[in-house]
Write a protein that binds this DNA or RNA. Structure first.
Lengths: 211, 211, 211, 211
DNA sequence: CATGAATGAGTTTTCATTCAT
DNA sequence: GATGAATGAAAACTCATTCAT
C-alpha cells in the first residue's frame, strides 16, 4: 500500500556474501518479533530495521516490501508446522485411524500453541493481502489433499463413513481444529487445554464416523 | 489551531428530526455498499459520503469514525443472521436432533451465502479492530451458549455422546461450519453447494455422536 | 490503515550526518522567519518546509510537530537573551546596584528590541501551549533566582529596603520591565525609546528603595 | 478563523422580544463558563449552545461569531473591574498617595483574584485576536490616563519624583501589578497572598519615589 | 425567533520507498 | 552492501457558519 511515489520495487537479489546472508537472517528474525508484538499493519519497516540493528535502507537491500518479508517469516513457520513428522509415526499405516488422528491433532495443537502469537498475525494478513492469502490457501490445499487421501483410504477399508465427501471433510475438520485453537490461544476463551484437545479428538473421530 | 488533529472524538448525538434519521440511514446503507466493494481498509469516508449523496462533513455529524459506522453495518447484519428463527421450527423440541441440526445448518448456510460479501469484510475487520473483535466474540458466545444448552439437553436424553464437553463442542462445530462456508463463499474453493451442506450435516451429526 | 491519524507521535532522532544537521538547521531558521511573519497559529508546516526548500515530509523527519520546532526556535532565543553577559560587567560586585541595574536593563532592552517580532510570538504561544509555558516559566524562575539573590545581598549590605520580599520583588520588577517593553515594541504604544529606558531605570531603582 | 466556506457573517440585530433578551443573556453567561473551563481556542460554539440549553443555530441568532460573544463577556468583566469605585474613597484627594495606592492595589488585587480564570483567557485572546487586543489596549490607555493624571498631580505637589515620565510610569506600574497577579493566580507561583500584596505596595510606592 | 442538520475547505501527519554517498 | 536522509501522495477529521423548516 504505497503512499508516496508509485512503487517501482527493485526486487533485491539474494545475498552473495556471508555478511549479506547474516544481515538478511537478522532481518527475518527481527521481523518476526516485530510482527508478533505489533501486528502486521502496525509493524513499521523502521522498527524491523531497528530491531535488526541495521540502517533503514538496508532493509530494502534484502526485501522489496513489508509483504515480502512477511511471506518469508510465514514460510519458515509453515515449514515448521506442516513438516512431515520426521518419524512420521502418526502416518504409520499400521496404526488405527483413531491413533493417527489423535497423534496428528496433538502435534498440530502443540505447534499452534508454541506459535500462537504469529498464527494470529497470519490470520490478519490473510485478510489483507491477496498474495499471502493465496500462499496460505496453497498450504491448506496441500494439507487437505493429504488428509483427503487418508480419509478415502479409510473409506475404502470401511473404517470411515462413506456418506461424506473426503475433500470437503478434510477442509471442514481442519477448519474446526484450526479455528478452535485460534479461539483458545488467540482470542483467549479460557478453557482447559487438555479438555479442548480431548473434545477435538472426539469430535473429529465422530465426524468421520469412525467406529 | 490545527484542524486535522483529533482532539477528542466527538460522538455525535442521534438525530432527532426525520430528516436526520433519513440521512443517517442513507449513510449506513451507502457504507455497506462501499465496504462490500472496497473492503474495510480501502473504504474511504469520502466514498461513503459520495455514495450517500451527502457532503463529506455530514458523515461526521452522524458517526465519529469508519469503525463506528462499520459496527452499525455489522450489527444490522448480525441481527439478521442470528435472529431467532421466527417460526423457530428448527428449535422445536419435538423434532429430532438430526432434523434440528440440518435445519439450523441450512438457515445459517443461506444467510451466509446471501451476505457472503459482507461476511468476508467482517473477517477482515475482526483481525484489525479490537473493539469489533469483542463485539463479534460476544455474538459467538451467545450462540455457543444456545448450542451448548441444546447439546447438554440431548446428552441428558442419551441422544448425544457424553464424551464431549458441550461448550467446547458448540464452539468447535460452529467454527467448522462457519469456516467451511468462508472457504466456500469467500475464498472460493469451488465446491458444489449441496455437497458442502450435506457433508457439513453429516460431520456435525457424527461429531456429536448422534445415533 | 489511515495515514492522517496520528498513532504515536514519532520523535525523530537527531541527525548523524552533516547533511542531516544542515537540513535541520535550515528548518529551524526557516521556522523562525515563518513564525515571525505569520505568528504561531497561522504558521503552516508547509510554509516552513517551503522556506527551508525541503519536501513536506522532511519536516517530520526532524521534528514531530510545530510545537517542537517552536520550542527549538525559542530555546535558541532564550539562550541568547539570558546568556550570562560574557564580560559580565553588570554583575561586577564592585559596581553600585544602580549601575548594575541600569546595565542589566539596557542589555535586556536591546535584546528585546532586536528580537521583538519573535518575542511577540512567544507571548502568543505561552498562552496556548502548556508545555511551552512551562519552559518559559522555568526561565523566569532561573532569572528570578538570580535577581533575588542580588537583592538579598544588597539588603544585607543595607543598600536596599528590607521591607520587600526579594523573590516577589524579582518577579514583579522583571514583569514590569518585560511587560513595558512588550507594550512598547509589540503593541506599539509609541513612546520615545530613551525615555522608556530611563523611566524604567528610575522605577526599578525606586522600587528597590536604593538610596 | 473560518474553516469552511468564507464567512458572510450576518450580524444579528439586538433582540426585541423579552424572550430574545433572556436567551441572549443565557448565552453570554454560558459562554463565560465555557471560556473559563476550555479556554478560548478550545471553546466550541456547540458547547456554549449546549451550556445555554439552546439549539446550535440559536447562537447565530444572537452573535455573529465566537469572537463577538467573547467581546461581550470580556466587556462585562472590564466594566466590573474598572468601574469607578462607587464610594471612590481611594480616589479621595484628601487621602495621601500611599493610602490611595494601597487602596487601589487592594481593590485590583481582589477583583483579579475573583476573576482569575477569565483573566487568564483574556490574556490568551489578546494574543490571538487583533480586534480584542485593541479593545483591551483601549482599557489600558483609559486606566493609564487616570493614573498618569494622579501621578502628575502628585509631582506638582512635590509628593512624587519628577524624574519619571507619568505616562510611562502609569503603564509600567500597571504592568507590574497586573503581571505579578497573573503569575500568582494564573501560573500559580505559590506565594503567600498577603506577602504579594504587601510587596507590590512597597514596590509601587518606592517606584514613584513617594517619601 | 428557534431549531438542528448540512456543508466542505483546510491542515496535519504518516511511512513505504528511493537514492546519493 | 550499508547507510540514513529525503520524498510526497494520501486520508482523516474539525468546526465555524449557513440554511431550510
Amino acid at each position: 500500500m504505497p503512499r508516496g511515489r508509485p512503487a517501482r520495487k527493485n526486487t533485491p537479489t539474494p545475498p552473495v556474501t556471508e555478511r549479506g546472508a547474516k544481515t538478511r537472517a537478522r532481518l527475518v528474525s527481527a521481523a518476526r518479533e516485530v510482527f508478533e508484538t505489533e501486528g502486521f499493519i502496525n509493524a513499521r519497516i523502521a522498527s524491523i530495521a531497528r530491531a535488526a540493528k541495521v540502517a533503514y535502507g538496508t532493509f530494502y537491500s534484502h526485501f522489496p516490501s513489508k509483504e515480502a518479508i512477511f511471506m518469508e517469516v510465514a514460510s519458515e513457520l509453515f515449514e515448521e508446522m506442516f513438516r512431515e513428522d520426521p518419524a512420521a509415526e502418526h502416518q504409520d499405516p499400521a496404526k488405527s485411524p483413531r491413533e493417527r488422528l489423535e497423534r496428528s491433532n496433538r502435534i498440530y495443537y502443540e505447534n499452534y500453541k508454541r506459535n500462537a502469537a504469529l498464527m494470529a498475525i497470519i490470520e490478519q494478513v490473510e485478510q489483507i493481502d491477496p498474495d499471502f492469502r493465496e500462499l496460505r490457501n496453497g498450504h491448506r490445499r496441500i494439507n487437505a489433499a493429504r488428509s483427503s487421501a487418508a480419509i478415502e483410504h479409510w473409506q475404502e477399508q470401511g473404517l470411515v463413513s462413506t456418506k461424506i465427501d473426503p475433500w470437503i471433510a478434510a477442509f471442514a475438520i481442519a477448519s474446526m481444529v484450526d479455528r478452535t485453537l485460534t479461539l483458545q490461544f488467540v482470542v483467549g476463551e479460557d478453557i482447559d487445554d487438555n479438555e479442548v484437545l480431548h473434545t477435538l479428538n472426539e469430535l473429529t473421530i465422530g465426524a468421520l464416523g469412525i467406529a
